[in-house]
């Protein structure tokens, strides 16, 4: 047990204060772009917080998604749309109320939760059964065991959420742009800095991603983290103009995006042979889990990539 007040605690407290500070700034700063940048910074610190909480898997996900992909997503949109807050909108009584009521509600909820945190005796009872049944799951990473075995059904639905979001975001395009490449038409200077970066980094990202995927089974990481990394480097290559963005009508990209959930659903359906659903037999647990994860990783990568690029859009 750590001593009452150590450098670790100091660090934790400073980290927490900083996270809160960044969140506050992000919420109160007038400039939208600044708010977005602050969200990225926030993501970095939250990832560190997860590390401190011993949740490496989450930290990986937060680092890849919170600090990486969400940043790309938001910054790209905000910077391009050049949306900023109106300098001084007319101040009315209502506007005042419109701040005070949410503020008091926020305060109420925050203090209520804080009160609960300090007074209630919290219980975590599932860690023991998770570990006890680990041998039957074929993996050694308990988080992966939960994601792909104990609560694989959650994961199945979750990949469906991603899939639905993809179709949904395609649905926002202009009718006449259907069949065009995803997002804007990217172009770069040939052999420029960006292009070179986009040629150089993806292989490294690929290795890191595969590593995270591989480590996911037994140590930490997994399909989502790896998929996010793949998606990120894929996007980089597209933004660097090295490869073309896929188009939504292309059969191959559709297959790519659909393969993971489809295979997963298929495995789930084979469970009916055993009068159940989504059974991962102990005998083939490891290979089957890895196969599902691999398919999911690819689909998550493709889906996130397409989500971040967005629907086909007209160049300004």
């Amino acid at each position: 047990m750590a001593p009452a007040f150590s450098a670790l605690t100091l660090f934790d407290v400073v980290l927490c204060v900083l996270i809160i500070g960044v969140a506050l700034c992000s919420s109160s700063v007038r400039d939208l772009f600044a708010a977005t940048v602050l969200l990225i910074i926030y993501g970095v610190f939250v990832a560190i917080a997860w590390v401190r909480l011993g949740a490496v898997d989450v930290a990986l996900a937060e680092a890849a998604i919170g600090a990486g992909l969400t940043g790309v997503l938001l910054i790209g949109a905000v910077a391009r749309l050049k949306i900023t807050e109106s300098p001084a909108a007319a101040v009315s009584r209502w506007q005042f109320a419109a701040k005070v009521i949410p503020a008091s509600l926020g305060l109420l909820i925050a203090s209520g939760l804080a009160y609960l945190v300090l007074t209630v005796e919290w219980r975590e009872t599932l860690q023991a059964p998770v570990l006890a049944n680990l041998p039957d799951t074929g993996v050694l990473n308990p988080v992966t065991a939960v994601l792909l075995n104990y609560r694989a059904y959650d994961t199945l639905l979750e990949t469906s959420v991603l899939f639905a979001a993809l179709i949904a975001s395609w649905c926002t395009t202009h009718d006449d742009l259907w069949g065009e490449r995803a997002g804007l038409r990217q172009h770069t200077r040939r052999a420029g800095i960006l292009a070179t970066f986009g040629r150089f980094l993806p292989p490294i990202g690929l290795i890191v991603g595969i590593h995270i995927f591989w480590a996911g089974a037994d140590k930490w990481g997994g399909a989502f983290q790896a998929g996010t990394i793949f998606a990120a480097v894929w996007i980089l290559a597209i933004m660097a103009g090295v490869i073309d963005a896929p188009n939504a009508t292309g059969r191959s990209i559709r297959s790519f995006a659909v393969a993971g959930p489809m295979f997963f659903t298929f495995v789930a359906l084979t469970g009916v042979l055993a009068q159940s659903f989504l059974i991962i037999p102990v005998m083939v647990a490891k290979p089957l889990t890895l196969a599902i994860e691999a398919c999911l990783t690819l689909s998550i990568a493709a889906t996130l990539m397409l989500l971040v690029l967005g629907a086909p859009r007209r160049s300004a």
Binding site: I40, V44, A47, L60, A63, A64, A67, G68, L69, G71, V72, I75, G76, A79, L194, F197, L201, I204, G205, V208, I212, Q225, I229, A232, V233, I235, L236, M239, A240
Partner: peptide
């Protein structure tokens, strides 16, 4: 991962 992806937002920017 952070080192790899930290720069991406700037590229997007």
């Amino acid at each position: 991962v952070l080192a790899l992806l930290g720069a991406f937002a700037a590229v997007a920017f």
